Simulated scan of single mutants.
Amino acid sequence: MPTQSTASRSHPWRGMALGFLGVVIFALTLPMTRLAVGSVDAPAMSGMFVAMGRAVVAALLSAAFLVATRAPLPRRADWPALVVTCAGVVFGFPLLTSIAMRYVEAVHASVLVGVLPLATAAAGAWLHKQRPSTGFWACATLGTLLVLGYVLQRNGGTRIHPADLLLLAAMAAAAVGYAYGARLSHHMRADHVICWALVIALPLTAPLAWTSRPEVALPAPAWWAFAYVAVFSMWLGFFAWYRGLAEGGTVRVSQVQLLQPFLSMLFAVPLLHETLDTATLAFALAVIATVAIGKSMPVRTAPLQEPA
C-alpha cells in the first residue's frame, strides 16, 4: 500500500480536485444551516436540533463505516485528543454556528469564518509547541481586527451582536478541534478520526437531538438543508478534504480553503436571496488576503520555552 507521501506525489491533481470538492461542500454549510434554522421572523428548526441531529445522523453513518473498514479501537493515549476533537468539531462549531445563523445572514457569517485557517494554524502551532514568526502573528492580529471592524461596521459602530460572538467562539472551537484531529491523523486514518469523534459523542448527541426535535410541521427546504449538513458537512466533506490533503499535499491543497468564504457568499445569494454589498466583499477580500499572507509566513519547529 502506498504511503501518504507517495500518494501525494502520484496524484497531485486528484488531490487538488478532492480538496476543492471538500471546500465546496463546506462552503454550503452556512447557507444550508441558515435555511434549516430559519430567521428571527420565520424560525424553523432550533439550533440545538440542527447541530445535534446532524451529529447523530453522521455518527450512525460513521459506525457503519468503521465496521465496514474494520477500524481498530483508538489507543488509550488517543482518547484525550479524541475528546477535544469531538468537543470542537462535533459540539462547539456546529452548535454555536447553528444558534448564531438564525440572527445573521450567511454572507455576513462568511466574513467571520474567513480567518479560520489562521486560527487553525495558530492552534496547531500551540499544540506542537512551535514558534510562529512575527509576521504570522501580525497577520493573525490584522485579520482579527478586520473581522472586528467588519462586525462593528455592520452594527453601526457601537456594539458587537451576540451572534457575532457565537461565531467567533465557533471559530476558536473549530480551530482547536482541527488541530487535535490533525495530530491524531498522523497515526490514524483521517476518516477514522472524524468517525470516532462522532461515535463517542453519540450518547450525548442522541438525547439532545431527541429532546430538541421539531414538534410542528416544517417546510421541505428546511429538512433538505438539514440532510445536507448531516450527510455532507458533517461526514462526507471530511472524507474528500482529508483525502485531498493526503494525495495532493497539505501545503498545496490547504490553499484552496481560501476560496471557501467567497463560495459561501455565492451560494447564499441564490439559495437565501441575500445580497452581497461592496463593503462586505471588500472586507472579505482583505481578510482572505491577510490569511493568504499569514499562511506563507514561516513557523519555527523549535519548541516554545515553558513559562517559569
Rank of each mutant, 00 (worst) to 15 (best):
M1D: 14
M1W: 12
P2A: 12
Q4I: 13
S5M: 08
S5P: 02
T6H: 15
T6V: 11
S8G: 09
R9V: 05
R9H: 14
H11W: 13
P12I: 06
R14G: 11
A17Y: 00
L21D: 00
V24F: 11
P31S: 03
M32V: 07
M32C: 02
V37L: 07
G38N: 15
G38D: 07
S39Y: 07
S39P: 10
S39W: 06
V40E: 15
D41F: 14
P43H: 06
M45Y: 06
M45Q: 09
M48C: 08
M48S: 13
V50P: 07
A51T: 02
A51Q: 07
G53D: 06
R54W: 00
A55Y: 01
V56L: 03
V57P: 05
L60R: 07
L61M: 14
A68K: 04
R70T: 10
P72I: 14
R75F: 12
R76V: 06
A77S: 14
P80G: 00
P80W: 04
L82P: 08
V84D: 04
F91Y: 14
F91R: 04
G92Q: 10
G92T: 10
F93P: 04
P94G: 15
P94D: 08
L95Q: 14
S98D: 05
A100G: 11
M101G: 03
Y103P: 01
L112E: 08
G114S: 10
V115C: 05
P117D: 11
P117H: 04
A119D: 08
A119N: 02
A119F: 15
A119M: 10
G124M: 09
L127F: 04
K129S: 15
T134C: 08
T134K: 10
W137T: 04
C139R: 03
G143F: 07
T144G: 13
L145Y: 08
L148E: 03
G149N: 01
Y150C: 12
V151R: 07
L152F: 15
L152C: 12
R154I: 03
G156D: 14
G157I: 01
A175H: 11
Y178G: 05
H186C: 10
H186Q: 13
M188S: 13
R189M: 15
L198I: 05
I200W: 08
A201P: 06
L202V: 00
P203N: 11
A206V: 11
A206C: 06
S212V: 07
P214K: 07
P219H: 13
P221R: 05
A222W: 01
A225K: 01
A227W: 01
Y228C: 04
A230D: 05
A230M: 08
F232A: 10
W235D: 02
G237Y: 00
F238H: 02
F239T: 14
Y242G: 00
R243I: 10
E247V: 00
G248C: 00
S254D: 02
L259S: 11
L266G: 04
A268P: 05
H273I: 00
E274C: 09
T275N: 02
L276F: 14
T280N: 10
A282K: 12
F283M: 09
F283I: 13
A286N: 09
V291K: 13
V291G: 03
G294H: 09
M297L: 12
T301E: 12
Q305M: 02
P307H: 15
A308K: 12
